[in-house]
Design a protein around this nucleic acid. Structure first.
Lengths: 152, 152
DNA sequence: CTTCTTGCAAATGGTTTGCATCGAC
DNA sequence: GTCGATGCAAACCATTTGCAAGAAG
């Protein structure tokens, strides 16, 4: 629970530098996010905290996610959906998304050659990249089969 | 204004098939979108229509964008921003985005080799793709230079 | 004339914020 | 003690929707 991971150190350092405090709520949210989740939205997080008897208000959840996002530990994306989705980041880790329009599940993929080509694009456009996100919408195997069947 | 482009034909056909009507508002919005814009948001469009003395209510703008999106003539994306951005599509055209976090401009790029790799990823995951979107955030040349200067 | 459309204003729903109280340090 | 943090409820804001009045076919 209180093991000193690289990420925890980063967060503590980030707070200190900004003159912010390490509160019970921030620590509890950090633990929850880094112990179980990959992808989640604000409501998921509120619900999980409630289950774990570590109730935190929605406002604080948003405020904390903003901090974690600001220090790069949490990524915030809109998967063409009406709400933000968050995902915890680990150093040096990067992945992109396959989003099933049938069952709304999100799958991750990694393709280093795409990343290389991105670098090339940025050079070509004299663009200095800081982050990127790549989504592919479509049907996962199960939903594709189902649709096939429905169509006769 | 009333030239019979491929896109216009597609839209008319789409409406007919659904038993919908070709109204003054829909035609005016179609014209505005296809004559000038590439990227825009709902408010831009409302403002432009007002300027052109072809006032259309915000509700109708959203409803019409939904139709154009449904028939594939307009793409709707969230550039990790609180609102939707739209862009008109031309047959066989595809591009991705470089988004400057300094000046908020959006640049387009095309990289067919990335598209090929995507195909490979989808095959690997037995995923049937229907569309995709790829964003790279960072600083454009001008903003990077400015930041450099500011940093001393 | 029937059905689909429009505009308005109200509703929605995720996210943000003002303020009084509480807790870190 | 001093500031920053929290929780609550209200505010925000882009988008959607119900409804009565208006046009397309």
């Amino acid at each position: 629970m209180t093991e000193m991971t690289e990420e925890r150190r980063l967060f503590a350092e980030f707070l200190r530098r900004r003159g912010l405090k390490t509160t019970r709520e921030r620590t509890a949210l950090f633990d929850e996010i880094f112990s179980t989740h990959r992808h989640f939205d604000a409501d998921d997080l509120v619900a999980r905290m409630r289950e774990r008897d570590r109730k935190v208000s929605r406002a604080t959840v948003y405020r904390t996610l903003e901090l974690l996002h600001a220090c790069g530990l949490v990524n915030r994306v809109r998967l063409s959906d009406e709400k933000y989705r968050y995902e915890r980041m680990r150093v040096g880790e990067h992945h992109d998304h396959l989003i099933c329009t049938g069952c709304h599940r999100v799958f991750e993929f990694v393709e280093p050659r795409i990343e290389e080509l991105q670098e090339a694009v940025c050079t070509r456009y004299r663009f200095r990249p800081s982050s990127h996100s790549h989504q592919i919408w479509g049907l996962c195997e199960g939903c594709a089969a189902e649709k096939e069947k429905a169509a006769g």
